[in-house]
Amino acid sequence: MERVPILKIGKTLFVSIQIDLQDESVMQLQEDLAEELAGTGAHGVIIDITAVEIVDSFIGRMLATIGSISRLFDAETVLVGMRPAVAITLTELGLSLRGVRTALNAEKGLALLNGSA
């Protein structure tokens, strides 16, 4: 199983998903992220999914769960770089990811976090 690295930049955790998402790797990411949030006291999480081409309902739901978990640590989650096809799939699946903020790219996501901090 491939592991997604979590980078800490200042008060923000940065996760860039560059692999084909498997159910286990997303579960692992959720665990790692929870650990990291508890340990570092970060106030924001940026998840870059520019490279993700395929999502299913499970991964969509896990993304929403990650958002909810982050909020418990008083951190905001920004999902950045979602591809149009992925956005359409998630909408068709009825997953609007209400608890997660979104931005077009990592730069804008960072600005969003800093602006709201």
Partner: peptide, 12 residues
């Protein structure tokens, strides 16, 4: 609503 939701997902 679907369109709006998809637009929000890409970050706009």
């Amino acid at each position: 609503l679907k369109t709006v939701s998809a637009v929000r997902l890409v970050g706009a």
